[in-house]
Each structure stands twice: as structure tokens, then as C-alpha cells.
């Protein structure tokens, strides 16, 4: 069953130029443009792209902390953008979020029990504080924290433990969708694996759907069923995780994947890999046509003319490049 359908999502911010007169028009920053994808119940969508590619904006548009300026976000067929603010707030119990900086996401003045129970107190005001505490300690156990630490404060925990607290808070209401905004980027590699495996286990136990955002493909491919590659807020490629990682077709995805080092010096030295030069262009003034053309190794003159359409190359594998070709990877 399809849980979430995003259709032609646009998120645009008005940027006031510095020292502008009140009547000068604002600059338009298009953070996400024309984005569409489906998320099946119980599956994971990985979203990758470099910094500034609109991954976090996408997450915030779905959860509703940033207003979408166009398109539809269909949840079980109803458009979240058309809900009243009140209905939208009640709906938030279905979608929860896990944040990048585990410590910053926890209020330093609240203890762990209060933090984990907060969604419960918000959406079920009739829960007694004793029940809330019991539920919080049950959640702590589920995410692998000792329940006797319930009176501790966030600064007394390590980064990995803080992220587990964040996960417990996100799951206490048994939501249907959890958006993970780079949940492991701030953690050690060894802790990353623990947290990713914890998420996978909890997903299986609770039947969660996940949107997993990261800039590190090696983490995403481990957890995702489908992968969405973003560049400057536009989708470059989308497909089943295996396909995208093993046989990337878009030049940008190919560059991203080849930037993941192979843990074998001989093979690493032997392989040819396209290297991207230059910086991400400004989203206030994106390149015409294909936004990636300024850094693309295969760019042709006509790339500047029109936005390349998404080509379906089979099995729901979509590529936004007319010059796409398969690159076999060793990953």
C-alpha cells in the first residue's frame, strides 16, 4: 500500500537582499523543485545528495515545519497541504523525525523521561505522568538504553546514546512514518552501524516506513529499498537501491558512488572514476536547463536548453539525463 505520494513538490523561499528597500522584490530561492516520489508502507526511501541539495528541506516540507509552495503531499490519498492547521497538528503523531545533531535535538533542561514522554503528553493529554514514565522506560529498553537512566539529562549521555533517546522519542507514539535527517552523520563509524541496525530492527518490529536522508551513500544503500538522488533540489535519479548503487545511470550518481572509497588499495587504485570539480551553483540563480550541466563530465550544448525529462529505464528506475548510460560499479 502506498503511504505517501509526493507530487511535483516545490519549496521556494523568499530571500530579502541585504539592505533592500521595502519595495524591491525578494530573491526566490528554489530549494526543492518538481519532486515526485511514492513511499510504500513499511519500506525505506533513501535520499542522497551533497550539502545544500535540498534533502533537509524536503524532510521539513513533508513534516510541515517548512511550508511547501506547490505540489501535493498525499498521505493515504489526502493532501496534507489542504488540512486545517489543527488537523495538521493532530496528524503529526503519524510522522516523527530524527535529527542530525543528537545532543542539540534534546532540551538540555529536561530529563530523558520527560523528553521521551513529550509526544505522548502532547497527543494523549489524559495519560497520567506515571503511565508516561512507564512508557518512556519501556521505549528506552527497546532502543537499547538502560531504563534506570530515566532521570538523567542529555548532557550525561554520549552521542550514540543521545541518538537512541531521539529515536525513542520519535517512536513513542508508534508513528507510521519516521523521517531520519542524517541521523548518523554526527556519529562514529562503529556507532553509525549500531544506530542503523537499530533502526532496521525497529522498522521490522513496528512496521515503520522510513525516509532516510544522508550524504553518505554507503550508509543509505545499507538501509534503503529505494534511493532518490537530489542535486540542487531536483531529482537526478530514482530507483531500487540495488539498481542505483550497482548500475548508476546518471553522471551525478556515478560521481557520488565512485566517491565512496573501496576498502582495498589495489582495486581502489585501479578503478577509473569521474571526479566532480567546482562547487554547487547557487539555488537563487540555478543554471538553465539541466542544473547539473555546469559540473557534468558529459555535458552537451543542448543541456542548457530544457529541463531533461525523467526517463524510465525499467523497473521504476528513473533518470533525468538523456545521455545516461550504465556504469557497472564494484560496490
Amino acid at each position: 500500500m502506498t503511504l505517501l505520494q509526493v507530487r511535483d513538490l516545490d519549496v521556494t523561499f523568499d530571500i530579502r537582499p541585504r539592505g533592500a528597500w521595502p519595495w524591491t522584490p525578494s530573491d526566490r530561492l528554489s530549494a526543492v523543485a518538481d519532486l515526485s516520489f511514492d513511499l510504500e508502507e513499511g519500506t525505506t526511501l533513501g535520499v542522497v545528495g551533497e550539502s545544500g541539495s535540498g534533502k533537509s528541506t524536503l524532510a521539513r516540507a513533508i513534516i510541515g515545519t517548512v511550508p511547501a509552495t506547490g505540489g501535493e503531499i498525499l498521505w493515504d490519498g489526502t493532501d496534507l497541504r489542504k488540512l486545517s492547521p489543527r488537523a495538521r497538528r493532530t496528524h503529526r503523531r503519524e510522522v516523527q523525525m530524527i535529527f542530525q545533531d543528537p545532543l542539540a535535538a534534546l532540551n538540555p533542561r529536561m530529563n530523558v523521561g520527560e523528553i521521551i514522554a513529550e509526544p505522548l503528553r502532547t497527543h494523549q493529554p489524559d495519560v497520567t505522568s506515571k503511565q508516561a514514565r512507564a512508557k518512556a522506560s519501556e521505549m528506552m529498553e527497546r532502543v537499547g538504553l538502560l531504563p534506570n537512566l530515566i532521570n538523567r539529562y542529555p548532557h550525561e549521555f554520549s552521542g550514540g546514546q543521545c541518538q537512541r533517546i531521539g529515536i525513542a522519542r520519535a517512536l513513542v507514539l508508534s508513528p507510521r512514518l519516521v523521517i531520519c535527517d542524517e541521523p548518523v552523520s554526527a556519529l562514529d563509524v562503529s556507532v553509525q552501524a549500531q544506530v542503523v541496525n537499530l533502526l532496521k530492527r525497529l522498522q521490522k518490529e513496528m512496521g515503520l516506513s522510513l525516509i532516510f536522508i544522508a550524504h553518505d551513500l554507503s550508509v543509505v544503500k545499507h538501509i534503503s529499498d529505494r534511493i532518490l538522488v537530489l542535486y540542487l533540489g531536483r531529482q537526478m535519479e530514482q530507483g531500487a537501491a540495488r539498481d542505483v548503487v550497482r548500475r548508476p545511470r546518471h553522471p551525478y550518481t556515478q560521481a557520488l558512488i565512485s566517491s565512496v572509497p573501496i576498502p582495498d588499495p589495489k582495486r581502489e587504485r585501479a578503478r577509473k572514476r569521474p571526479v566532480l570539480s567546482g562547487e554547487l551553483p547557487s539555488p537563487v540563480n540555478p543554471p538553465s536547463g539541466c542544473v547539473f550541466r555546469t559540473r557534468c563530465p558529459k555535458a552537451q550544448p543542448d543541456c542548457a536548453v530544457g529541463r531533461p525529462p525523467l526517463l524510465d529505464v525499467g523497473d521504476g528506475h528513473l533518470v533525468a539525463c538523456p545521455y545516461q548510460e550504465v556504469m557497472e560499479t564494484v560496490a
Binding site: 497538528r89 503529526r92 510522522v95 534534546l106 532540551n107 538540555p108 529536561m110 509526544p119 502532547t122
Partner: peptide
């Protein structure tokens, strides 16, 4: 702009509660 405030908004906590529970104590 701290993430814990965003987390509260995303959870669906009302604005007055956020001010009293998350902003004022800090």
C-alpha cells in the same frame, strides 16, 4: 533555531507550550 525546538514543533506541541516548556527554562 535549535533542533530541540524544531523537534517539539514537528511533534505537534502548541506554540504556548513550546514557549513555556522549551524556551523559557533555557
Amino acid at each position: 533555531n535549535k533542533e530541540f525546538v524544531e523537534a517539539a514543533i514537528a511533534t505537534g506541541v502548541r506554540t504556548p507550550t513550546i514557549i513555556f516548556r522549551h524556551i523559557v527554562p533555557n
